[in-house]
Computed example of a mutant assay.
Amino acid sequence: MVDAALHTIDDILREFPEALFYGQDVGGELGGVFREAALLAKKYGDTRVFNTPIQEAYIVGSTAGMSAVGAKAIVEIQFADYIWPGLNQLVEELSKSCYLSNGQFPVQSLIRVPIGAYGGGGPYHSGSIESTLLIIRGIKVVYPSNAADMKGLMRAAFLDPNPVVMLEHKGLYWSKVPGTEDAKTVEPGAGYVIPLGKAAVAQAADPQKLQRGETCVVITYGMGVYWAKTASRQLPGQVEILDLRTLNPLDYEAVEAAVRRHGKALVLTEEPLLNSFAESLAGRIQRTCFQQLDAPVFTLGAANLPAIALNVDLERQMLPNSDKVAAALTELLGW
C-alpha cells in the first residue's frame, strides 16, 4: 500500500502541474514517517513537495487558499489523532465553501490521514476518527484496504471536486500484521481509478451454502476486512465480506443487496461502537431490510475506552480480532 500511494502521487505530480503535496516531514529524501513520499521532493522540487510546520490547522486550511488560485493540494496529517486542530478549517471552510458559493468556489483537496492501532502506538498515534468525520456534510471519506484500492481511490479522490479525506490504516501499509497479506496486490497501471461510492465483495460465500441459508455477510472496511477473512477460515464457505471502501458516499445499494442475499449481517469496525458509524449503519439496515433479516444485525468494535493503550497486550485486548469476530459469527449463524 505504501508503494501504491507513492506511485500514485508520483503519477499525479507528473501529469498535473497544478498538483502539490505537502505535510509534516514529507519533503526531503525521507518522504514522511511512513516513507510514502520518498524522493518525490528531490524529483519535483521543494516548491511542489515540501514540509510544513507541525500545525494541522494550517495544513488543512491552506488547501482552501491553494484551490482559490488553481492549485490542487494533496496534504498529509501525520496521524489521525492530530487532525483535531484542523477540524475548524475542515468544517467551517472546506466543507461549506461549495454550498455557500452556489457551486462557484468548490475546494478541491485531498487530505491523507494514517489511521488505526498498530504495534503499540499509544493514545496519540492509534485512534480511529471516521465517525466524527462522517457527520461533516460536504466532505467525502474513503478508506482503502489494499494496494490496488489505494491507487484507484486516491486518484479518484484527487480528481473529485469536493474535499476528500482518505483514511489509510497504518497496520496495512506493509502487511506486517499476520493475516493482512492480501493487502498486497498486483499494482494497477497509471490512471487507474475506482469510482467513489462503490463497495466491493472482498470474499464471496459458497453458493450451495448460501442456497441452504447457512451464510452471513460481514460489512466492514480497512483492517476489519482481514479480521473477517481470518475468522471466516473457521467457518469455510459461510461468510461473505463486503468491503465498503468509501464511507461517504456510502454504497448502500450494495449493503442492502448483501443483507438480502444472506439474511444475517455483522457490521465490523475498529472504533468503539457507542454512537458510531457502525451502529448507525446497523440501525439503517434493520429499518430497510427488516423483512429479509433472519437475525438481529450484529455489531462488533473496540472496547468503549477513551484511548488506545500504549501497552501492546492491552491494545490487543481492547481491539477486535479474528477470534472475537469468529465468536460473533458463530453466534450469528446459529441464531
Results as ranks from 00 to 15, higher is better:
residue 253 E to D: 15
residue 268 L to F: 09
residue 239 V to D: 00
residue 187 E to N: 09
residue 266 L to D: 12
residue 295 A to W: 06
residue 210 L to K: 13
residue 247 L to E: 04
residue 162 N to G: 00
residue 188 P to K: 13
residue 202 A to Q: 08
residue 224 G to N: 05
residue 212 R to L: 11
residue 201 V to D: 04
residue 192 Y to H: 15
residue 260 R to F: 02
residue 287 R to I: 05
residue 287 R to A: 11
residue 202 A to L: 13
residue 270 E to T: 11
residue 298 F to K: 03
residue 187 E to R: 14
residue 220 T to G: 08
residue 266 L to T: 02
residue 210 L to W: 00
residue 294 D to G: 14
residue 166 M to S: 11
residue 293 L to Y: 08
residue 166 M to L: 14
residue 268 L to P: 12
residue 196 L to I: 02
residue 187 E to C: 03
residue 282 A to I: 05
residue 194 I to F: 12
residue 249 P to V: 00
residue 247 L to T: 07
residue 174 W to I: 09
residue 174 W to P: 02
residue 262 H to D: 01
residue 202 A to W: 12
residue 188 P to E: 09
residue 232 S to I: 02
residue 292 Q to D: 05
residue 267 V to K: 12
residue 218 V to Q: 06
residue 234 Q to P: 04
residue 195 P to C: 06
residue 248 N to P: 00
residue 246 T to K: 09
residue 295 A to V: 05
residue 206 D to Q: 10
residue 254 A to R: 13
residue 251 D to L: 08
residue 210 L to P: 03
residue 167 L to W: 07
residue 202 A to H: 05
residue 195 P to Y: 14
residue 267 V to T: 02
residue 175 S to V: 00
residue 235 L to M: 04
residue 251 D to A: 10
residue 152 G to L: 14
residue 283 G to V: 04
residue 278 A to G: 09
residue 198 K to N: 07
residue 234 Q to Y: 08
residue 258 A to G: 10
residue 208 Q to T: 12
residue 200 A to G: 07
residue 273 L to K: 02
residue 258 A to Y: 06
residue 210 L to T: 14
residue 161 P to Q: 12
residue 261 R to D: 02
residue 253 E to L: 15
residue 294 D to S: 15
residue 182 D to K: 12
residue 255 V to Y: 14
residue 176 K to C: 06
residue 279 E to K: 05
residue 265 A to G: 04
residue 186 V to E: 14
residue 293 L to P: 13
residue 170 K to Q: 14
residue 195 P to N: 08
residue 267 V to P: 04
residue 187 E to D: 09
residue 299 T to F: 08
residue 179 G to S: 06
residue 253 E to K: 14
residue 208 Q to M: 01
residue 258 A to H: 07
residue 187 E to T: 07
residue 172 L to I: 00
residue 158 F to M: 01
residue 183 A to C: 13
residue 194 I to A: 12
residue 157 A to L: 07
residue 260 R to W: 01
residue 297 V to Y: 11
residue 220 T to D: 03
residue 231 A to H: 01
residue 174 W to D: 03
residue 290 F to H: 10
residue 268 L to N: 06
residue 229 K to D: 05
residue 268 L to A: 12
residue 205 A to F: 11
residue 262 H to L: 04
residue 214 E to R: 06
residue 201 V to A: 06
residue 182 D to Q: 14
residue 196 L to E: 11
residue 238 Q to K: 15
residue 193 V to R: 15
residue 268 L to V: 07
residue 245 R to P: 03
residue 239 V to F: 04
residue 215 T to K: 09
residue 193 V to F: 09
residue 225 V to A: 01
residue 289 C to P: 12
residue 284 R to C: 08
residue 285 I to S: 07
residue 237 G to R: 05
residue 288 T to I: 10
residue 289 C to A: 09
residue 193 V to W: 13
residue 239 V to S: 01
residue 221 Y to E: 01
residue 278 A to F: 11
residue 247 L to C: 08
residue 174 W to N: 06
residue 258 A to F: 10
residue 179 G to I: 10
residue 223 M to Y: 01
residue 158 F to W: 02
residue 159 L to T: 03
residue 292 Q to H: 13
residue 288 T to S: 13
residue 205 A to R: 07
residue 294 D to N: 13
residue 263 G to T: 00
residue 235 L to G: 02
residue 257 A to W: 01
residue 289 C to R: 06
residue 214 E to V: 07
residue 237 G to M: 06
residue 270 E to V: 03
residue 213 G to T: 00
residue 273 L to D: 10
